[in-house]
């Protein structure tokens, strides 16, 4: 595994000049893609922040081949790209060692794109899918998604007189992907570059499908200061809301255990989208939120125990 210093010497797949928001942490992982591996990469993006901000014609932030076609289908699009590579290999028309990476936000992955993602992984393409989960449809202006946490205010789950924030829990897409019996499924966070780059490298280099879910705070969506993305992600991991773990050939491994698990409210109350929950009438909701985080963390540790 290359050190961060070695990685920094390699050319990044993603160049400066892109139009992501100030403080957006998405480039942390897009830059790593080519830096972690010696394979040549072909990338694809679902419609979303990363796609629109990286490819405003006639400019492109991508130094490697990259394709975008639509919102719900990056996994299907990349299936076609990867299949064509297999044809070239089979016929001896290329001596390149190519790997394929699809990227989408939680909208393009948890929701509108889950069908094509599920099928591409089930078919077993040699493809790493990276979801950058910022917990809402941020590109269209912060609407709730299946990944939006309970209670979060978005433009479609506003804080009103009768309801306040999202009324439902988020779905656990990482577990859904584990159920696909694929080679590699992992959760990572943009605040931990060692763990993140290890997982990207593993997902890229193994033969077969891999899925990586990356916690990726959104400055305007989470209503945090532009210099707070990394800190906010770290806090999410320290609460165990977003555990760092991987499932390799069905075996769970927890990659990081907080020394002192901090309360979920530390994370929630540091973000503008949850500040309404400080009102005492939401005490029950917060208790339930904490209980669920605790239960899922315990469940995860049990899975790891069962695997060893």
């Amino acid at each position: 595994m290359p050190t961060l210093q070695e990685m920094a010497k390699k050319k990044a797949a993603f160049s400066s000049g892109h139009r992501l928001c100030a403080g957006c942490p998405v480039p942390i992982f897009t830059k790593m893609l080519t830096q972690v591996t010696d394979f040549d990469l072909v990338l694809g993006s679902a419609t979303g922040c990363l796609e629109v901000a990286s490819s405003i014609f006639p400019y492109s932030a991508w130094n490697v081949p990259w394709i975008h076609t639509a919102f719900e289908n990056v996994a299907a699009t990349m299936s076609g790209v990867e299949a064509m590579y297999r044809v070239l290999k089979k016929e001896g028309r290329t001596d390149k060692r190519l790997k394929f990476v699809a990227m989408g936000g939680d909208g393009g992955t948890y929701d509108i794109g889950i069908q094509s993602l599920s099928a591409a992984m089930e078919r077993g393409h040699d493809l790493l899918y990276i979801c950058y989960d910022n917990g809402a449809y941020m590109n269209t202006g912060i609407q709730r998604s299946g990944a939006t946490p309970l209670g979060a205010a978005t433009t479609t789950t506003p804080v009103g007189e009768v309801t306040a924030g999202k009324q439902q829990q988020r779905k656990d897409l990482t577990k859904i992907m584990v159920a696909h019996h694929m080679r590699y499924v992992a959760q990572a966070s943009i605040h931990n570059p060692i763990d993140l780059s290890n997982k990207i490298k593993k997902g890229i280099e193994l033969d077969g499908p891999a899925f990586l879910n990356v916690l990726c705070p959104c400055i305007p969506g989470w209503r945090i200061a532009p210099d707070m993305a990394v800190e906010s992600a770290r806090c999410g991991v320290e609460t165990c809301f977003w555990p760092l773990y991987e499932v390799e050939d069905g075996k769970y491994k927890v990659n990081y255990r907080p020394k002192q698990k901090i309360p979920i409210t530390d994370w929630l109350f540091s973000q503008g989208r949850f500040t309404h929950l400080k009102n005492p009438r939401f005490a029950g909701l917060l208790e339930g939120f904490q209980r669920q985080v605790d239960e899922e963390w315990t469940w995860l540790l049990d899975q790891e125990k069962a695997a060893t």
Partner: peptide, 22 residues
């Protein structure tokens, strides 16, 4: 031919576009 037995026609055309762009 590599035959991709997709899960929908939307993905069929998406995969066709990917393969064609390749």
């Amino acid at each position: 031919t590599e035959l991709i037995t997709v899960e929908s026609e939307h993905s069929a055309m998406s995969a066709c576009i990917g393969a064609s762009a390749a």
